[in-house]
């Protein structure tokens, strides 16, 4: 199989101003922190980020840094509470924030990659989350119709990748990686370890390599 391993420079060429980018990670665990810092360095701007939270400015991860350096115009997320700058930018009208319940956030990404037009969830019924959405009653229960999320690029973080892009994640770092691998036009992986094709047990692979376009070796 052809190797998908590329240099950071080659991968960064794909990241352009105005793109919609999915970044996995939950409280900075499982996100491609090093790649995010390279994006910051490159100067990309006007991004729409799809990220579970807004990061924590004091930690060395990039989501928070991209936000506080005004590179993000819109953030689709479940939680911004640990990044006070995100709240300030939102209140000042400089950052558009779409707050989504975390389970709905995960499922919208899954739908985006699974060919589904949307899904019905009881989460958010009777709250501000329901505003502007269709409420559907089915078998005596109310649901909100939620729509899929899709991105131009997803940047994943794998603990182990083989050169064909088969991926294994570590502990809590799996989080949104498998779903985001399905829901973007281009999938780039920041890999901690790279092994030869055949070294990973097929039963242990969490994301199949066909979903991955590029792998960059970056140790943290």
């Amino acid at each position: 199989m052809k190797s998908k391993v590329v240099t950071i420079e080659t991968a960064l060429e794909q990241i352009k101003d105005g793109m919609t980018i999915m970044l996995p990670g939950f409280q900075d665990v499982g996100g491609p922190a090093k790649f995010e810092m390279e994006m910051l360095e490159k100067g990309v701007k006007d991004l729409t980020l799809i990220s579970c939270d807004a990061g924590t400015p004091s930690r060395p991860a990039g989501v928070a840094k991209l936000i506080i350096n005004n590179r993000v115009k819109k953030l689709i997320t479940a939680h911004i509470g640990l990044n006070p700058v995100a709240g300030e930018l939102m209140n000042a009208g400089e950052l558009e924030v779409e707050l989504v319940p975390m389970g709905t956030f995960a499922e919208r990404i899954r739908c985006g990659g699974a060919g589904l037009g949307g899904f019905l969830t009881p989460t958010g019924v009777g709250t501000v989350v329901a505003e502007g959405k269709q409420t559907i009653e089915l078998n005596g229960r109310e649901y909100l119709l939620e729509e899929p999320l899709h991105a131009d690029v997803a940047i994943l973080k794998a603990w182990k990748a083989d050169k064909a892009g088969n991926l294994v994640y570590n502990r809590c770092a799996r989080n949104y990686n498998p779903a985001m691998a399905m829901a973007a036009d281009l999938v780039i992986v920041q890999a901690e370890n790279i092994v030869e094709v055949g070294e990973l047990d097929p039963d242990a692979i969490m994301t199949p390599g066909v979903l991955v376009d590029m792998i960059v070796h970056m140790e943290e």
Partner: peptide, 15 residues
């Protein structure tokens, strides 16, 4: 005052 986001609370309460 405080708009941190709902995180997983809405899902937990409903589920």
């Amino acid at each position: 005052k405080k708009v941190p986001g709902m995180g997983g609370a809405m899902d937990l309460l409903v589920g």
